[in-house]
Structure formats: C-alpha cells, structure tokens
Design a protein around this nucleic acid. Sequence first.
DNA 1: AATAAGTGTTACACTTACTGTAACAATTAT
DNA 2: ATAATTGTTACAGTAAGTGTAACACTTATT
Lengths: 137, 137
Amino acid sequence: MSASTKLSTSVKALSFLAKDVKPKNSTEIATSVGINASKLRKLLSMLGKAGIVKSDSGALGGFSLAKNPEDIHLQEIYCAIEDRKAFYLNVNTDNLEENGTSEKINYFFLDLFSQIQVEIENKMTVITLKSIMEKIK
Amino acid sequence: MSASTKLSTSVKALSFLAKDVKPKNSTEIATSVGINASKLRKLLSMLGKAGIVKSDSGALGGFSLAKNPEDIHLQEIYCAIEDRKAFYLNVNTDNLEENGTSEKINYFFLDLFSQIQVEIENKMTVITLKSIMEKIK
DNA sequence: AATAAGTGTTACACTTACTGTAACAATTAT
DNA sequence: ATAATTGTTACAGTAAGTGTAACACTTATT
C-alpha cells in the first residue's frame, strides 16, 4: 500500500470508529472500508502503538478511538503508519570524492527534501479527524 | 530509481554539462555521476524531450545544455523525468457506494494531495540550475 | 563507401518488493 | 472449557524495479 492509500484507509477506519463508542472488531471495520481484515489489523496495530486507537483482545474485544476526534491530527496518523518519508533521497554513494560536486548536490537535495517534508507535516498538523468528518458530512 | 534519486542524478549530469559548452557523450557523463551509461541515456532522453538538453547522434555527438543554466528550473527537470506525482492516491474502488463516506474521503485526499503537489512544484519553480551551482560552489 | 562513434530504445534475465491470505499464539469474556 | 478476538509471522504468488546488453539509426571522418 502506498503512503497515501494507507493514510486514506486509516482515516476511513477511524471515522468509522468515531461514529460509535462501542468497540468494533477488525472484520466489521475491514468490511466497511473494503480491505482484508488481517491487513487492517496491521494498520490499526500501528495506530495503536501511536496511541490513536486502543484495542482489546479476547471475546467482546475490538478497536475503539483512544482520544476524541478533535484531538487526532492527520500528521499523527501519517507518522504512525509511515516511517519512510514521502521525499527521501537514495544517495548513490559510489563515486563520492570527499567534498566533490556529487556529494554537495546530495546535501542540497537532502536539505530541500527535508524542508518539503516539514511543510507537508505542517499542513497535516492543522487537520483533525473531526475537521475531516465535518467536511465530508 | 526513486523520484528524488532521478532528480539529483539529473542535476549532477546537467551541472557537469554546464561546465563546458562542448558536447559530452553518455559514457563520460555516466562516469562522472556514477551510474550506468545506458541508464543515463534514458534519463537524458527524457530531458531532451523537455527541451532541457540537446543531443547529437553520430561521431562527435553527445549531450549539451539546450538553454542557459539560469533558464533551467528544477520544476521543469522534475516534470520531465517524473510523470507519476510524489503524492498520488491509489483509491480503492471496491465498496464504493455512490456518495458514501469512502468516496468522500477519497475526494478529500485527492484534493489535499494536489494542493501539496502544487506547493512542491512552486518551491521547485524558483530554483534554477544556476542557483544550485552557485550554492554548491 | 566504409568505418567508427554516437544516441535512443527495446529486450531480458535477475533480483527485490509488494500483496493477500492463512495460520496461530496470546488474550479475555462467558 | 469455549468462543471470539488481536497481533504477528509465514508464505506463495505476483508485480515492479535494476542493470546490462544488443541493435537499429545517425553522423563525422577518412
């Protein structure tokens, strides 16, 4: 799954959970968002580690939101599910003379990409699950 | 090659070409940037179609810049080598009831991602090959 | 005309990554 | 005990990426 697909799938699952306080099991959520239950559990497991959802094992278990929709920011979700950043540089380390042009260009792009990364995350920080749900109502 | 790697490799090749008006062949450029000559020709071929480099076949042929470094914008290079955008949404089309929540969330993200895309390209528009070369001098 | 040096593109084997599903240990309510 | 549930691992199958070679086409030189 691409980063963007994981993100939208997560939001679909979270907005499903937000509609009701009762825990929902992975099968039910997966059916609603249209993916495989096992796959969904992997996603929700990451969201759980980030403190966005809580999960209960066992009978009557399931997933529920760990905080209010207005306290869940898109940026948190993004960071929870995606370790590799959207812009990253596979620097090629061959042919890298110390302080040569290639190395300097690599640094230029590392810097540029991290600036872009920050801007993307800033944009996502001001978006909450609640604001998304209101927008699509 | 990832988008970012293609971008930095292209800039390395272009800055190599900018140093001298005489055409350089793919072997020479490839050695300088540290990749395979055939792979480099594929990259430069895309830059050629975008009017950034010009190429001459035959003996004494090779690649050279088609415009001045101050008229080559990073955004042009990016668009020339990358058709798929950095942020794109693999919408999952299963389980998509007309005007349902899933569909609306898809549209929300398509919109968000295209905003981000525009911002990235705006950022790249103001960067020229010349400005990069001066920065890394 | 023949040759040598180029580009541009295609093909192909190889490897790597992704995908979807199933399985199962661990957990918990009944 | 039993049934329902999460969390994680494993695995086969498929898709995607990689690097190289090959070769048709082009052009300057002799």
